[in-house]
């Protein structure tokens, strides 16, 4: 297990992004950021600042604007097909069972899905007994678990998370953070979030975006995932919140 984690860690590349993004000529942000390989980077900032745009740029999706700059992996290889993505909405197909949703990536590529592996992953996220149910029969937390299993099924070294836990109730959210930290260990993760507590718990690195720049925010000395009620987590969370309120204003 430890060997596997180490191997993955060395396999997960870091990402550097530097450049300017503008929509219809109006600049949205200028940023320079480095996402260390095999670690969690949490990205915060006011709404509309372009956090999700950063994520879409790395994913290579349309952003409705122009980006001038560079996005590169630290190992010099292309980022294409090395990233998986999980959003706030679970994006499960309502007509498919949980298992079929987990393997939809293979179906979409025209490959034969590995149903055994899907079952094992569903067991790992605690959905084993619900594998044959439709998403409508699951709770919000269970649906996000299914989405996480689908993300894991893709087995990509880089994972981009766009506020995946923000719609969950507090208890479920804390559970999901722990589960995600465990199962995504060793991958390069970019987590877009609005929640300072989440960033303080999960981030190896925290970046705060504002119109002019993207600045690193000091993280607690211990390594994630940190206890919710550890003093350093709470201090980081409080200071980060105060800072975000200034950025807002």
């Amino acid at each position: 297990m430890a060997d596997g984690a180490e191997r993955r860690m060395s396999a997960a590349p870091g990402i550097t992004l530097s450049g300017q993004h503008s929509i219809g000529g109006a600049p949205l942000f200028a940023a320079e950021m480095m996402l260390p390989g095999g670690q969690w980077t949490c990205l915060l900032g006011p709404s509309g600042i372009g956090k999700s745009t950063v994520l879409r740029l790395i994913l290579g999706l349309e952003t409705g604007g122009d980006f001038v700059g560079q996005i590169a992996a630290s190992d010099g290889q292309s980022l294409a097909n090395r990233i998986s993505y999980m959003a706030q909405s679970d994006l499960l197909m309502p007509w498919l069972s949980v298992t079929e949703n987990t393997v939809i990536g293979a179906r979409l590529r025209g490959d034969v899905p590995d149903l055994k592996r899907a079952e094992a992953l569903l067991d790992r996220v605690g959905l084993g007994p619900h594998a044959q149910k439709k998403p409508s029969a699951l709770s919000g937390g269970m649906r996000q678990r299914a989405a996480l299993a689908r993300t894991l099924m893709e087995d990509r070294p880089i994972v981009l998370l766009d506020e995946p836990f923000s719609a969950l109730d507090a208890g479920t959210r804390a559970d999901m953070q722990e589960l995600a930290a465990e199962v995504l260990a060793g991958k390069t993760v970019l987590l877009v979030t609005h929640d300072p507590a989440e960033a303080a718990r999960l981030g190896h690195q925290i970046i705060v975006m504002s119109a002019g720049e993207a600045t690193a925010w000091p993280t607690p000395a211990s390594s994630p995932i940190r206890e919710i009620n550890a003093p350093e987590t709470l201090t980081c969370q409080a200071e980060l919140l105060a800072h975000l309120r200034q950025v807002q204003a």
Binding site: L59, L61, S84, Y85, M93, I104, R107, L108, R109, E154
Partner: peptide
């Protein structure tokens, strides 16, 4: 179809025809 679902499919390396078959038509 929800744009998020299409983004997800693209990030998975889906072909146009498979997106049609597995996402758009059932939807």
């Amino acid at each position: 179809v929800d744009r998020g679902a299409l983004d997800l499919a693209k990030s998975m390396g889906a072909t146009k025809a498979n997106i049609m078959r597995h996402i758009q038509i059932p939807h």
